[in-house]
Design a protein around this nucleic acid. Structure first.
Lengths: 191, 191
DNA sequence: CTAGGGTCCAACCGATCAGTTGGTATATGG
DNA sequence: CCATATACCAACTGATCGGTTGGACCCTAG
């Protein structure tokens, strides 16, 4: 049976993603990751140096590229709403991503893989300006930040929804979030 | 020297608030709380039972009542923006609150002290309907949830702001958040 | 074929974890 | 003034933490 070191690395990163998303950096033990991955934890130190460096690798592995293949479909404010819906559905398909974003914000000083992610955000900002021709860059950036915050917050500040909208389910909130994204986009378009 | 058990309890809760806000439930040790409070950690078990129960007490101690003395000043959509600014300024005065909200969402299944906080949110919802007469309850609830999410997210998803609006500071984002709250309120008022 | 380096793992290390215990100091009821 | 209950703390316990080590196994260069 031949070795597949790339696969071993990947199994560690996948298990790390699951465990860190569930219980955060401090709440996850290296032994947990070894158990979940089926890989001896010593490999983690050989490949990634330390638990902390491994955390950075996991965040980069899962968060870098999050926005890259997320297109803004169509034009006008409705396209921004649709984009918010796409981001929401990505979290539905993989809820770990939203939680990793939240742990990153709480447990780290700054974002991981900042260089590429910053330019990816700038890219989406430009697309928003295409879609909303009268929007200046500053306004488009804050629009983007608010939309990402609304969508991500629905997954990471989940207790708030239970308090404020106790009768509603996820889909109700999805619809409201898309609607709010459209409203914010419309306001940017016509100042 | 007489005893002051209420004060001892309070010192534990204050230290727990600081420590849990900084590093979360899993990232805080009971010894940290003992050190920070100047109280022997055995007292924590005597008063609160376990680390986990103590965490619930700390969350209730700091989060219950958060919205109680936060008035919606004036009328119309601008009042909602002003309310968002008041909430923001409360986080400025005490950033621990925003972080505790985030840890609660990530590390707990549901909100602490749910009963009173739910009714406090319903209260604010009613105030929003006073201020925006044409808003139905459902819309007012989602407006409130979005505003709280935007303000709280600015403190807990702080890495996002560094990526999306790297040139801006806190006050720029405060202004944008207030503006967005007004826009959302205006849309609710005139559907 | 074999020497040497990389892959992998069980077992181990000191430190730290949540939680407890035994004992002392302080209050209070009679 | 004494008995008892409570507040308090230093020191302890077994378990688990992040990280390391010694050696077995596998692959490739010469």
């Amino acid at each position: 049976m031949p070795w597949d070191t790339a696969r071993t690395r990947e199994r560690l990163l996948e298990a790390g993603s699951r465990q860190f998303a569930a219980t955060g950096f401090a709440g996850t033990s290296v032994a947990d990751i070894g158990r979940d991955s089926g890989v001896n934890k010593e490999r983690l130190y050989a490949y990634f140096g330390s638990k902390r460096e491994f955390f950075d690798h996991v965040l980069a592995y899962r968060l870098d590229g999050l926005l890259d293949d997320l297109d803004v479909p169509g034009t006008g404010p409705e396209a921004v709403g649709a984009w918010a819906g796409l981001l929401w559905d990505r979290y539905v398909a993989d809820p770990d991503i939203a939680r990793l974003l939240a742990w990153e914000g709480l447990e780290l000083d700054g974002p991981a893989a900042a260089a590429h992610r910053t330019s990816a955000c700038a890219e989406v900002t430009r697309r928003l300006q295409d879609v909303l021709p009268t929007a200046d860059e500053q306004a488009a950036r804050h629009l983007l930040l608010s939309v990402i915050t609304l969508v991500t917050g629905a997954w990471t500040l989940s207790g708030l929804a239970a308090l404020v909208t106790p009768a509603d389910d996820r889909n109700d909130r999805r619809a409201a979030t898309v609607r709010h994204a459209v409203v914010l986009a419309r306001a940017v378009q016509t100042p």
